[in-house]
Structure formats: C-alpha cells, structure tokens
Design a protein around this nucleic acid. Sequence first.
DNA 1: TCCCTTCCGGACAGGATGTGTCCGGAAGTC
DNA 2: GACTTCCGGACACATCCTGTCCGGAAGGGA
Lengths: 330, 330
Amino acid sequence: MTETPRKDLPGRLLRLLSLLQSRREWSGAELAERLGVTDRTLRRDVSRLRALDYPVEGVTGTAGGYRLVSGRNLPPLLLDDDEAIAVALGLVTAADGSVAGIEDSSARALAKLEQVLPARLRPRLAALSDAAVAVRHGDVPRVAPDVLAVIAACRRDRRLLSFDYRNRADEAGARRVEPHHLVTLRGRWYLIAWDTGRADWRTFRADRIEHPTPAHARFEPRELPVPDPAAYLTRVLAGASYRYTARMTVRLPAGAVRAGLFAAIRGEIEDRGAEGCAIRLSADSAHLVVQYIAAIAALGAAFTLDAPPEISDRVRELGRRLTRPPTSFS
Amino acid sequence: MTETPRKDLPGRLLRLLSLLQSRREWSGAELAERLGVTDRTLRRDVSRLRALDYPVEGVTGTAGGYRLVSGRNLPPLLLDDDEAIAVALGLVTAADGSVAGIEDSSARALAKLEQVLPARLRPRLAALSDAAVAVRHGDVPRVAPDVLAVIAACRRDRRLLSFDYRNRADEAGARRVEPHHLVTLRGRWYLIAWDTGRADWRTFRADRIEHPTPAHARFEPRELPVPDPAAYLTRVLAGASYRYTARMTVRLPAGAVRAGLFAAIRGEIEDRGAEGCAIRLSADSAHLVVQYIAAIAALGAAFTLDAPPEISDRVRELGRRLTRPPTSFS
DNA sequence: TCCCTTCCGGACAGGATGTGTCCGGAAGTC
DNA sequence: GACTTCCGGACACATCCTGTCCGGAAGGGA
C-alpha cells in the first residue's frame, strides 16, 4: 500500500488557493480530503504557499484551522477614483527610465493591482494604463532599485550606511552617513544624509552610490537645517560651489529671468527690487558657466559680470565669435 | 552539461501568469529568458497552464507569440520585491506636481496598498514611501486628473473627443480628435491625436485642454507614422517649427553637443561625421533661439549660423555686449 | 491538571516527473 | 522559398514529491 501516485502539484496549489479564498476557515482534514491527499501533504502544500508569500494562518487547538488572512475577500482594496488614477499615472511615470529596469515591474504591478480593484474602477485603470506612456530620459544615469531600497531600509532602522561614492571628479571614496531623505528631481535621485566623516550634511547622487551596506551602529535622526527635504535639495543644488563661480546682476526681476530661460540653471537668483536681480552661478566646467552667462545675457537686459579671468576671458572670446560668425542670411 | 537543476515549478507558473497578464504579447524566447528556463520548458509550462484551463493563445510565424486572451479567473497574484519598489517609487514621483492635486491621493493609495502586500514586503514599501520625496515642478502647469481620465476613457471606447484648446498664441478653439496616446515628458502631459478638423496628426498639451467631452461618434484607430508614441512625441517636439527657426553647423559630434549643453534644447541635432553636426533650432521667441545659439557657441567649437535677420542681428548685438561687459574681475 | 484536538515538521524510501538536449513538423510572414 | 515562430515526441538523469511513520507545541474543555 505504499503507492505514491503523484498528483499534479501546481494545479493542486491553485485549487488550494481558491479553496482558501472561498471560505473563511478550513480544517486541515477537510482541505486534505478535498484535494485528495494526505494531511501531511496538505501541510507541505500550505508551507509551499507560505514560501510564495501567501499569508496562510494556522490556528492550533480544538477550534483551529487554516485561513488566508489578507486575501482579497476581506478588503478588496477600496481605492477611490482619484487614488486609482494616481496609481495608474504613478506606475506609468515610474517607467521613465530614471530607475533601472523598473519598466517591467511597474507594468506587472499595474496588471496585478487591476485584479484586486473594485469592479467599477477596473476599466478606468485599464484605460489609463493602456493610453499613457512615459518618454524615457535618455541622458540621465539610472539608479539600481536595490540601492534606493537599501537606503530606505537603513533610514527606517536608523542604521548608519556605508557606501562607495564616485564624486564629480570621478574619484571613488568610502562614505559613512546617516541617511535622512531620498529626493527625486527631474529624473535623478538624491540622498540627503549627514556625513559622519565630514560632520556635515551632504547630498549624494544615488546613481553614483555603489555597494550600499547597512552598518551595525545606529544613530539618532538629526534635524535638517531646512525642514522640507525637497526645498533643502533645491537650495543646495542652486547654492553649491563648484570649480568655477560667477556673479551677475541683471536689470530684470528674478521671476522674469527664471521664466525667460529655456531651462533651469544651477544658481541662486535673488531679487534686488528696482535694480533687478543678483545671480550666482557655479559649475565644474568653465564652458557651463559661460553657457549660463550667455543664456542670461541673451535675455536682452543690461547686466554686469563678476567672474574669474578663466570665465570672463571665455565670455569675451565668445562675444567676438558671436559678433562675426560665418553667417549666411536666409 | 546535462545539469537539470530543478527550479520551483508552482512559483514559476505564477510568475508566468503574471508576465502574460502584464503585457499584450510575449515571444517564447522572452518568456523563457525571464523565467530562467529553456524554451522547451517554457512550452511545457504553457501547456501546463492550458491544462489548468488558462486560455493561453499561441501564434506561430515571425510575428508570433503568446498571449492570455481573457484573464478573468486568475489566482490572486502577489506583488514581488521589484513590483513593490515600483509601486512606492511610482506613487512618490507621481506627486511631483505635474498632475493637479494628486499628492494626497497617491499618499492615501500608498497607505491602502500596503495592506494587500505580503507581510515580508510591507516594511520595504513603508520605508521607501517614508524616505522618498519628490521635488515639485514649480514651473510646469498642472493637468487636472479628470482631463487625463476622460481622454483615456475616450480612447478605450474609440469615441471622438471634443475639447477647447488654447494654443501657443493663447487663442482658444474647439477641437474634435481621435485620441491615440497620452505621453508624459519632463512633468508635462501631451495628447497625441488625429485632428479630424485638420485631417492630420496633432499633439496637444494636456494642461491647455479644457472641457474634454466624449462625442457620440466612434472611430477606427489609425496607425501613428512612428509606431512608438514616445519616440513620435520627441520627434515632433524637436522638429516642430515655431515662429523663429535657425540652423547651425558645429564642429563637434552630435553626442558631444547634447552632453555639453546644460539642458536639452528644442531642436534636431544630426550627426554629419567628420564635419561635426547640423542643428535646427526653433522657438516662438527670438530670445529663446538666441539663447540656444549662445549656449551652443559657448561650447567653444567652430560654428556657422544660418538664421533670419531678427535672430542674427540679436546674436551680433549679444556678441557686442559680451565683448565689453561692465566687468569687475575678482 | 489532564486529555483531546489541531497544527507543525523531521526522517525515510521509492518512484514519479520535471529538466535540458536533441529532433522533425506545421503555420505564418517577408 | 527562406526564415521565424510555435508545437510536441523521445530520451537520460536526478530531483523532489508522496505516504508512512513519528515526536512536539499550542490551545480548549472537563
């Protein structure tokens, strides 16, 4: 009697899943009987489901049994209209290429979430996810999703975080920081953290972080100088001092300068009332600073420039070339 | 080399179902690669699913592939690690201010979604959604979520769509279109549609669309000249002719120009081999075109310019001002 | 407190069955 | 007609699934 006619395991697991969904609570013996297997095999099947992350709860004792705890029969994911739209738009825009290889994951997540949505919302989500597409940033370096996940986990656990960082000069170095926030801006992810080595706040580009590893030591969260991490990041990026720095004053209100330029510049623009505004520009490459200056000057307003010779020489040189370009008028 | 390390079959079948659900059509090779098995095993898996009554359709030939025809009675599929990360990042970045008032909705959706996750992933999602923040685009106009939803619904139902549109010159007009795709690019949403009035393809900024209303009439979807809507949009935006247009040739490879500029310009950059590259610039404001030219010239390479007098006069004027700026050296 | 019921999981033996590597065939597209 | 795709048979091999033991832990009722 030691026949062990092997039944179809995958199908049985699916049947078990559907049984667990269909009723609140089952005893092991019942399930085993329905599936036509021994109780021992049933227990094995249950642990298989658990290994696949299905939350099957077992209660011992005389009133015991199995139940699927967060299946979908209790809460069928009660999103309202706006929330469903947010999910669809969020998962579509997440596939914009800023995080490496996330496109497939978000497509799969969208399809799965659609399943657990109340029937009324399902078509809306489907329509949006069919219709909407994100243009992938071609130029921004991608972040590995794991890097972001590790950083976030570290922050939650208040654990110090070690990683290798390639700075702007492409020099690698080991860092040890207290992660504070992850901020995304125009397709890039930044980590705002307290650098224990420098004893100061630093921002790191997430795509330049390698081998992030949680340390054992813990830390007590500090307060950022500016409470809002997003505001802090924009201020830091604007105010950062790079290799070359220049100052301009322009006879235009600060708002007009911001609105008139074809893209945001790396720099602080400060309103000075009737005089116009003062601008501080900084970049690692002299070419970039000159680009900023040229673009601002192209707005047409009167300006003054205060810059080191490497910059101002290039600006004058650029001026000469623009004055007499090999032009053919059309 | 006849190692046959046996993988986890039930889990693989669930993954296969989730893949089939997430995309319209898959080739056998793709699926096999994702699942980490040979094509033969994939075929076996497909027939296993078919034996379990899942309607997997196979199409032979060079345009062939597998598809799940009507996935209704699917088992409850759980999100895996990458999908949970995608959800968190997607909903965080959705709050970047491009869609009006979506911040609260995505936060609430995130909180509710956490409930249906496998317990193992719940902390990860919570950690990421706590840690991550999006900088809100201050400058881009916001779209009302309803506008996007109505457009998507229209597209799904193949209904004509009427709306009022304010064009670049701020002139309002009624349009009647066949919606084809919604594309997001750097915080803006665009509608690609066939304009029945103009009898041609048009792209519309979603934030300038008002009173979108589905018409009663239906339409048969057309094929976009470029199959990929995202590629089509970037091409249209780059190639669009605005009020002022200028042409430059620069003695630099196209890639060097793109990488050297501090931001993407509105224009087509075409590689010309040894000569460098040809650039076509276009904008509604002469100031903008001059900005582009100045920024490109600031790269330092030799260039020629071909532009209407309004532009070239301004360029020379800019050149003069840059040559003798009221500079004080530091 | 004891007893009973339930879930839990280790050990073991034997064989069914999932796997990769072959292969030829049919269907559809260029 | 050449090519690409899906389809499925045959085979060898080892993996792993199965039923049958078994002892243990947890909970409820007398």
